[in-house]
């Protein structure tokens, strides 16, 4: 049962920060996905996409902050960094798929 993982102590006054930062990670994540989605759907102007990227940067920062606060291991930190890069591309892949799928399947209009 050799283990290199170390379970850090967390003091009582650090929890509020951890929960708030964890929420922020998800809120910024949704903010990013939502601004890209809404602008691609045409509900808001294209320029709002820039705000989306700002959300993404904030998300990266809050996730990094969360990792620091819970003392995550170097390996986990690297995995998180890769995950964040993937998340940057996810909505674009998503809308590429939507566009392509529509081109392919919507041609047979009123099929349903």
């Amino acid at each position: 049962m050799e283990s290199a993982i170390y379970m850090p102590q967390i003091a009582a006054d650090q929890f509020l920060g951890i929960f708030i930062v964890a929420t922020m990670v998800l809120i910024f994540g949704v903010g990013y996905a939502a601004s890209i989605t809404l602008s691609k759907m045409g509900f808001i102007a294209k320029k709002w996409q820039l705000f989306g990227y700002a959300f993404w940067i904030l998300q990266v920062y809050t996730l990094y902050d969360l990792g620091m606060r819970i003392h995550s291991s170097p390996f986990t930190t690297k995995v998180l960094a890769v995950a964040m890069l993937a998340y940057l591309f996810a909505p674009h892949l998503y809308f590429y798929l939507i566009d392509e799928a529509e081109k392919r399947y919507e041609t047979s209009e009123d099929g349903q």
């Binding site: 590429y96 798929l97 392509e100 799928a101 081109k103 392919r104 399947y105 047979s108």
Partner: peptide, 11 residues
């Protein structure tokens, strides 16, 4: 459905 050029991503 039978389009030859269709992308694999939409398959």
């Amino acid at each position: 459905m039978s389009k030859k050029s269709a992308s694999v991503w939409t398959s």
